[in-house]
Design a protein around this nucleic acid. Structure first.
Lengths: 124, 124
DNA sequence: TGTCATTGAATGACGCGTCATCTACCTTGG
DNA sequence: CCAAGGTAGATGACGCGTCATTCAATGACA
């Protein structure tokens, strides 16, 4: 019905709006201060948050909406930037597990603060 | 503080999740059935919804988070697909205003139904 | 053990959005 | 009327994400 449709569209627009505003804000903030984008941060965050278990690469793909190949490329960039390292898994030589470098850990810590701050500014 | 931060991040994750799920669903649906993407539909929708006023191109940019150049390219595609037409404005020859073609109006009508349906499935 | 299917990850072609820039046109001040 | 500045829209280089494909390693089963 018309009213339901209108409400749906309203709801959708507000999600879109919140999403765009917030993700752009995070992106700009991280980009300017730490030279990484939102996706890079998300990966950093995921790796940081599960730094005890192994064979991440695969697991990562399950925790983000990113494609496997996108994850691979983000990891490429982070590795080139010296923020994390790929290590091969002894028990399955196809798998890799990831680990933050010292620099990665440090940057993640700072970036996370910024991240939360921007969220606070942009969400209700 | 920790709890506030956690709530913020939770809220953000749920927005991201809703956004990705929904926009992907819309995109796939429109792509497969009408061969247009989400941004194309949004533009079509905006033009359809304000078909009485003129000099859209500019106005469009103000109603979407898309860049002016992105709008220009989306309009390119829609024009190539025969769904809308650019008309030059008599009183300001830099401006263009847009108009759906018959095909565009028809496709928009169908696509809008699909769009609302997918929203209904994906939003609370 | 040898074959065949499967799985983790990398890669290349491609599409799209962004930024910076460009062109045409309009406006204002002298 | 002309010059300088501003504005609408287009365009090209570029970065990133996706899809399809590829490769190596593994598993399953005869």
């Amino acid at each position: 019905m018309a009213t339901t449709d209108r409400q749906l569209v309203e709801q959708w627009r507000s999600i879109q709006d919140a999403y765009f505003r917030t993700s752009c804000a995070i992106d700009r903030a991280l980009e300017s201060k730490f030279d990484i984008g939102l996706n890079e941060f998300e990966i950093l965050d995921l790796v940081a948050e599960s730094s005890d278990t192994a064979c991440r690469m695969k697991a990562l793909g399950e925790r983000t909406p990113m494609t496997q190949s996108a994850v691979s490329k983000v990891v490429d960039r982070l590795e080139k930037a010296g923020l994390l390292a790929r290590h091969s898994c002894a028990d399955d030589r196809r798998s890799l597990f990831l680990e933050l470098t010292e620099a990665g850990r440090k940057l993640h810590k700072q970036a996370a603060v910024e991240h939360r701050a921007v969220l606070k500014e942009n969400l209700s």
